[in-house]
Each structure stands twice: as structure tokens, then as C-alpha cells.
């Protein structure tokens, strides 16, 4: 092999791993999987809220990626390419399942609620530390369209113009849906808050 074992183990850059995977090198495939598996799986998990579904989708995404790897030329960042592919796999899956609201240009009117200002001292208390299990559960409780945009923007760090491309919606729509998603998430967190996850003011 032109690329020696010692170099292989040190090959940090995706580009080298990609070039080797393109030539059928198992070690390169395994290394690419290792580098990206957590982020890919977590994205699937956050978007579906189901571990078994998330594993199936992560598997599907990696397979599609590795089948297409010969066409990757390194002009865009590999991780961006991968994540777009993952999001597409997940959205395709959600649409197949018949879940509504994945397309942000057809928002559910019932979701357009004003910020609630209710009675009672508890209602003006701040949310304090949010543990990750509570937050993950609340994100899973969001409608799919809200969940997609919130996961992409707030969890994965995509910009609105990228989300607009991925979800085929306008930038303005991505922004407004994100805002509604955060408000909805806040509402879910406040309704399911636990003694350990919140302290009164």
C-alpha cells in the first residue's frame, strides 16, 4: 500500500481518508465512520427522537455516503456534505412516515400562538439549569418541522441560509419557525420541569 499503516493511523484529515476509501481501503472507511458517527447519529436521534430509528437512519446515511464517496472532490467541506446528506435521509424518512410540518413553507396555523402569560407565581419563574435528558425529551416533543429547524440551528449550528436550502424554505421562514420552535420548547420545558432541573427565583 502506498499509504503506510503508521500514516494511516495518523491521517487526521478527511481528504486523505476519502482518497483511500475511494480505493477500497477498509481502514479508511472505518476511520471516517469513527470520526463522524457521533454527530451523524445524534443528528438522527434529535430529529427522530427514537434510538432504533436513529440507528437505522445513521446506517443508511453512511451507506449512501460511502457509495457516493467516489464523486466527492473536496470542494465543499466533507462534514457539510455529510450533514446535508444525513438531513436529507432523515427528512425523506419523516416524509415517508407521513409526518406533517416537515416542510416549513406549510406551517400548521395552530402553532402560531402568542407567548403565554399565565396566572400564578410559578409562571414568571425562570428556567434555570436544564439537564440534557430533560432538554432532549422536550426537543423530541416538538412537532417535526419545529424540531428540524431547532436541531439544525441551535443544536447543530447551521445558519438560516443553509437551513433554507436544506428544508427548501425561505430564510425568513426558517427564522420565524426557529423562534416559534424555541417558544414551544420553553413551554414544554416549563410544563415538564422537574425539581432537580429548576429552581425558583
Amino acid at each position: 500500500m502506498a499509504l503506510s499503516q503508521s500514516r494511516a493511523s495518523k491521517a487526521a484529515s478527511d481528504a486523505e481518508l476519502i482518497a483511500r476509501a475511494q480505493r477500497g481501503d477498509e481502514e479508511a472507511f472505518a476511520a471516517l465512520f469513527e470520526v463522524h458517527k457521533r454527530r451523524v447519529y445524534s443528528l438522527c436521534l434529535r430529529m427522530t427522537g427514537d434510538t432504533a430509528e436513529a440507528e437505522d437512519l445513521a446506517q443508511e446515511a453512511f451507506l449512501q455516503l460511502f457509495r457516493k464517496i467516489a464523486t466527492f472532490r473536496g470542494e465543499s467541506a466533507f462534514s457539510t456534505w455529510l450533514h446535508r446528506l444525513v438531513v436529507n435521509v432523515v427528512l425523506m424518512h419523516l416524509r415517508k412516515k407521513g409526518l406533517q410540518q416537515v416542510s416549513l413553507d406549510e406551517p400548521d396555523a395552530s402553532q402560531d400562538e402568542p407567548v403565554k402569560r399565565e396566572y400564578g407565581d410559578d409562571d414568571k419563574r425562570l428556567l434555570h439549569s436544564i439537564d440534557r435528558i430533560t432538554l432532549s425529551r422536550a426537543i423530541e416533543g416538538l412537532p417535526p418541522g419545529y424540531r428540524a429547524v431547532l436541531v439544525l440551528h441551535d443544536v447543530e449550528g447551521y445558519e438560516h441560509n443553509e437551513i433554507a436550502q436544506i428544508l427548501s424554505c425561505s430564510v425568513g421562514n426558517s427564522k420565524s419557525q426557529l423562534h416559534k420552535a424555541r417558544l414551544k420548547l420553553r413551554e414544554l420545558l416549563r410544563s415538564q420541569r422537574l425539581p432537580a432541573s429548576i429552581r425558583g427565583t
Binding site: R38, Y41, I130, L135, V155, L189
Partner: peptide, 12 residues
Amino acid sequence: MVRSASAELADD
């Protein structure tokens, strides 16, 4: 808080 907690959500 929701925004910052989401950004810090660790990968599984």
C-alpha cells in the same frame, strides 16, 4: 437558556 443549552447538547 434554551438556546445555549441546545448548543451544548452533547453527542450520543
